[in-house]
Amino acid sequence: MQDTTPDVIDGVALARLYGEPLFNLPQDLYIPPEALEVFLETFEGPLDLLLYLIRKQNFNVLDIPMAELTQQYLSYVDQIRTRNLELAAEYLLMAAMLIEIKSRMLLPVVRNDPDPEPEDPRAELVRRLLEYERIKIASRKLDELPQLGRDFHIAQALAQLDAEERLPEVGALDLRDAWVGILKRAKLNAHHHISREELSVRDHMSQILRRLQGTRFLEFTELFMERVRAGAGPAVIVVHFIAMLELARESLLEITQAEPYAPIYVRLAYTSSQPALE
C-alpha cells in the first residue's frame, strides 16, 4: 500500500523524536521504531483531508474523480484505524459518504426522470468543500494578524522620579510687563464728571414752529444743520429730533417726499392763523 501521508502539513511537525519536533524525514539517521511516532491526526477533520488530497493533486473541485479520491482517502483511514479507533470513526463516516457517491455515479441514468438534468451526486460534497475552504482561508488570515502575547507584548516601565520645584527667575522684562499692567489697572479708576444739561422737548417744539413760520417747505437736514453749525452737541440734536416727531404726532407738522430716495421736506400742517406753541 502506498503511503500518501505528507512530510509537512501546514507547518505542523510530522512526528516527534524523543519529544523534539520532526518536520522532515531523516535520510541518514536510524530512528528506533519506539522513538518515532507519526501524527496521522494532523488533519482537522475529514473535510480537511479531502481538501488536502484534492489541492495536492490539482483536482478540479467541481469535477472530482471519485474513484481515485476515494481510494486515497480509504488508504489514510486504514492507517489511523490501527492507531486511534475513536478518531477513525469520524473519518469512516465520510468514507461511507464517498463510497455512496461513487456508487451513485456508477448507476445508469433513468431516462423517464422528469428532470432533464439529474443532480450530480457530488454537488453536496462540493458545496461543503468550498465552504470549508473559505472558512479555512479566513481563519488563516485572522491567525496571521499580530496577537498580543504571541507576536508582541505591551511594554511596561516603572520610573521613580524625584521632582524638585524650581522658582522662575525674574528679569527686567518681567518687571516692565508687571509695571505696565499696574498702570492699565490704575487708568480704570479715573473719575468722570458728568454735567447735566437741562433740555426741554416743549421748548424745541416751539423753536421748530417759529422756524417754519413763513416758510413753505424746509429740507429735513437743514432743520438740524442749523443747530450743528451753531455748535449744538448730540444731546441737543436728539431732543430737536424728538420735538419734530412730537409735532408730527400731534398733526402740527407734515413730513413729505416727492419720490423714493428724493429729499425729505417738512412743513407746517396748520394755517397761518394758528398760533405757535410757547
Rank of each mutant, 00 (worst) to 15 (best):
R104Q: 15
V201T: 02
E164T: 15
D143A: 01
S200I: 00
Y261K: 12
S206C: 04
L253F: 00
L106D: 14
M97I: 09
K141E: 11
L92E: 00
M66A: 09
D151R: 03
L277C: 04
F39A: 13
P108V: 04
L212G: 07
L49R: 14
D7Y: 01
A258G: 08
S75Y: 06
Q57E: 15
L212I: 09
N112Y: 12
R81W: 07
M1R: 07
I237W: 02
R81K: 13
R16H: 14
P116M: 10
L106M: 14
H153S: 10
L209R: 04
I101Q: 00
D115R: 03
Q27P: 01
I237D: 05
E219M: 02
I80Y: 12
L268H: 09
D10W: 04
A88T: 00
A163E: 08
L145M: 07
E133T: 09
E198H: 11
S273H: 03
L173A: 10
P114N: 05
L145H: 04
L158E: 15
T5D: 03
R55Q: 05
E90L: 11
L167E: 14
D7F: 00
A258H: 12
R127H: 11
L158F: 12
F39P: 04
L209N: 03
L22V: 07
R166L: 09
P234Y: 03
V38C: 03
V8T: 08
A248S: 11
A96L: 13
I80M: 15
A235F: 10
D120S: 07
A67N: 03
R140A: 15
S200N: 00
P65W: 09
E219R: 04
T4C: 12
I9R: 01
S195F: 14
Q160E: 13
E259W: 12
E219N: 06
L158I: 15
V109F: 08
R216W: 05
R104F: 12
E117P: 00
I80A: 11
P118V: 06
E41I: 01
A13D: 02
A88M: 01
I264W: 05
P108M: 04
I208P: 07
V12G: 00
